[in-house]
Computed example of a mutant assay.
Amino acid sequence: MAEPAGQLLLVDDNRVNRLLLTRHLTQQGHHTEVAENGRQALQMLRGGGRRYDLLLLDIEMPEMDGFEVLAELKADAELRDLPVIVTSALDGLENVVRCIELGAEDYLSKPVNPVLLKARIGASLEKKRLRDTQRELVARFATQQVARDLATSGFSLGGRHVRGTVMFCDIRGFTSLVESQTPAEIIELLNTYYTLMFDAIGRCGGVVNQMIGDGLMAIFGAPQPLDDAAASAVLAALEMQQMMAQFRAEQRAAGRPELHIGIGIATGEMVAGYTGTQERATYTCVGDTVNLAARLEAHTKEAKRPILIDADTQAELAGAVPTEPLGPVHLKGKAAAVNVFAVR
């Protein structure tokens, strides 16, 4: 069975080398584009018009040599995983070692043996496909922010102190709803609900880190810092309510159950990081701020208000969003009364 073709970028200042290599690569089924030097190659890689699967890189070139290109790729989070096979006439073990240390997958001496080149390209493309599949799986089971944090910082159990905003959201009357609907209908309802909530939270810079039944927890300000985390969370909550109002209208028109949600938001210090084991872990936040947001969400049922926030969130809003003070409230699990505000 033929190996899958790749999108290759060949970088070589010698026109004859470019013609010969391009011919070999085309015969192998690959689509190949060329650059005459390192600077042009980086422009093509960063141009955004096309994504490449592999870079074939010469070392001795004008304007920017291969070593400089490798260093640039290694420093660029968007390009550091691009496989690079160096093809060079430079002799010396030190040059090979330098290329490998800078991130090259392999080093082939010129003139390049076409059979060996084919094998090296095949192995490099297979590695890239495995990395791409792994990245897609991480993105599917983690948010973009968490995936980006894993890519840049790596995985380690533990946490760090951050200041941010936590949101809890829950469907009202979900237990009775489950009893009146089939499992397939409930799953379809939850999928629509989560799609709408994820969209609103994500566009406001939040990270959904937990989904439990009909509830979710979102973080604003971790793992990546976020300016105006409190305001972003409140704006996300307002958009979530607007989306649910539209969804209720559609459900009502179709004679289906309508969903109402309650949202609690709290701002403050917390510990954010990966918790669990080396085999299975999740990104989350812990601390009094998290507990307070959960209690505020639960209190929306008694307060008959869809969005409740704490005093720290209210202070950071600085009047940007209309709110209504509900006074000190004794929340379950809190020793002292908490000043609670309803978002209007």
Rank of each mutant, 00 (worst) to 15 (best):
A151V: 10
V146H: 02
G215D: 10
L25V: 06
G47S: 07
G255P: 06
G38R: 07
Q242D: 13
L216Y: 05
A200G: 00
C204M: 09
L235T: 12
A266P: 03
K332V: 08
D53F: 07
S176M: 14
D199M: 08
G38K: 08
A218D: 00
D12I: 05
I201D: 08
P257H: 10
I261Q: 00
L90P: 08
G213A: 03
V112H: 05
R15C: 01
V69C: 13
R280C: 03
Q314D: 10
D76K: 08
A249L: 14
T313H: 05
G6T: 09
R80D: 05
A254Y: 04
G327H: 10
G276K: 06
V162N: 00
V340S: 04
G319K: 11
G154N: 02
T267D: 06
H24D: 14
G213Y: 04
D312G: 01
A237P: 05
G205Y: 01
N14V: 15
F155A: 10
R148F: 05
A293M: 07
E239F: 00
E63R: 06
A298P: 07
R18W: 02
R46F: 11
N37F: 05
R135P: 08
T165I: 01
K128E: 00
L189G: 05
K334G: 06
C99N: 08
R23F: 12
A303L: 03
A281G: 04
E324R: 15
Q242R: 15
G29N: 11
T267L: 03
R248N: 14
I219W: 00
E63Y: 04
A281H: 09
E72C: 14
D76V: 09
Y52P: 06
L177Y: 09
L125H: 10
P325K: 08
G273I: 01
F198M: 03
R50Y: 03
A229N: 12
T323C: 12
M197T: 12
N17C: 12
K332A: 06
K301I: 10
K118N: 13
Q28H: 11
R256E: 07
R140Q: 13
E279I: 01
P62R: 01
L177T: 13
P322T: 13
F341V: 02
R344P: 00
M1L: 06
S180K: 15
R46P: 08
E36Q: 13
A236R: 04
L308M: 03
G215L: 11
L326D: 07
Y193D: 06
N191S: 08
A337L: 12
L216A: 12
A236T: 04
A318S: 14
R51H: 14
D81E: 11
A89I: 11
T165V: 04
E68W: 05
Q134S: 14
S153I: 01
E72A: 15
I186N: 10
I100F: 00
N339W: 13
G66D: 04
E105R: 06
I121S: 09
F174H: 04
G264V: 09
A293Y: 07
L73Q: 01
H330K: 15
F141V: 12
E101F: 01
G47T: 07
K110E: 13
F168C: 03
G202Q: 02
